[in-house]
Design a protein around this nucleic acid. Structure first.
Length: 316
DNA sequence: TTCCAGGTACCCC
DNA sequence: GGGGTACATGGA
């Protein structure tokens, strides 16, 4: 086992594994992450924390696939550069296995959801290769604070600008330079004028205030511990704890719980969810309370995954 | 030009 | 506690 390094060499690493219920187009284009982009060959390249990689699915040969059927079974190839100095191959593999949530059986969960609700048959069929990425908490917090009242292409632009302006270099990969997002320490030291280059609009001050709240609470380690304790008490307690931060309301808190804390019970309701839940279940578009209740109770304990299938279906 | 985007904070009743 | 409204920005 060799270790990567020196740091600036961008040593390449790679691992392969058999997967099912895994479609990169579904995973990286379902609105849960904003730092991945699709290549001509259908693979996706992006950054998670300071880890840069390309993710490619090679479909099993001999599959009888019609043109409209999505492929979510095959060999997954993750190629990347080490995420930090001295990272071993084993650590590289472990990082991406966890990030891509490869050790969860999605077939069982999908069967469960379809049994609970017949409407889930067509909903899941549209995005059957979705997985919930297990993203870094702080990244998820700033990403979804930026997402409010914003569209996905512009959210991506804002996040990239933030990384390039105030983040740290994470290496050069496939001809592109990658930057991690700024830490709470860095963001807390900025003024709203400093952030204007990122075109965050009124969300800029939210980021700065939240970064300062994190430092006041003792840093991200302390915050993560606090939030984990809230999560133990239940999904509502976690959302309430997240709402203590500036710029985090019920919807953003739900996304952070789901994507940044792996709380698969969380059921964030946004404009797309209001539309689709009105269409499928006839719930009044203004009745977010009822939608949250349905998401929480009808799909328990996998409301968050049901939410992702519904969101993907709604955006089709 | 107006509308819209993975909403939130703040004010008013 | 529910119901308005301002808040930046840029693409359609």
């Amino acid at each position: 086992m060799w270790k990567c390094g020196p740091w600036n060499e961008n040593k390449m690493m790679k691992f392969e594994t058999k997967v099912r219920d895994f479609c990169p187009d579904h995973i990286f284009d379902c609105g849960q992450c904003f730092r991945w982009s699709r290549g001509e060959d259908g693979s996706w390249t992006g950054i998670a924390g300071s880890h840069v990689a390309n993710v490619k699915l090679i479909p099993d040969t001999g599959q009888n696939i019609s043109s409209e059927q999505t492929i979510s079974t095959g060999t997954l190839i993750v190629t990347g550069i080490c995420g930090r100095q001295g990272e071993t191959e084993e650590e590289f593999r472990r990082f991406w296995r966890e990030y891509l949530d490869l050790d969860r059986n999605y077939s069982e969960i999908k069967d469960f959801l379809r049994r609970r609700d017949p409407a889930m048959n067509r909903v899941i069929a549209s995005g059957e290769g979705i997985r919930i990425l297990r993203q870094d908490l702080w990244e998820t917090m700033i990403s979804f604070m930026i997402s409010q009242n914003n569209n996905i292409p512009r959210i991506k632009g804002c996040i990239e600008a933030l990384a390039r302006s105030f983040g740290a270099p994470a290496g050069r990969f496939m001809g592109e330079d990658y930057y991690s997002l700024p830490s709470p320490e860095v963001l807390a030291g900025l003024s709203r004028e400093d952030l204007e280059v990122c075109r965050l609009g009124y969300r800029g001050p939210y980021l700065i205030r939240t970064a300062r709240q994190v430092l006041d609470a003792g840093g991200m380690k302390a915050v993560e511990l606090q939030l984990s304790e809230a999560k133990e008490k239940g999904p509502e307690a976690l959302v309430e704890a997240l709402r203590e931060f500036s710029g985090i309301g019920p919807k953003v808190a739900g996304c952070i719980a789901l994507f940044g804390m792996a709380d698969l019970r969380a059921f964030p309701v946004d404009v797309w969810m209001r539309r689709i839940m009105h269409e499928i279940y006839g719930i009044d578009e203004k009745n977010v309370r009822e939608m949250e209740r349905r998401g929480r109770e009808d799909f328990a304990p996998w409301g968050g995954l049901a939410q992702q299938y519904l969101f993907f279906y709604a955006r089709q």
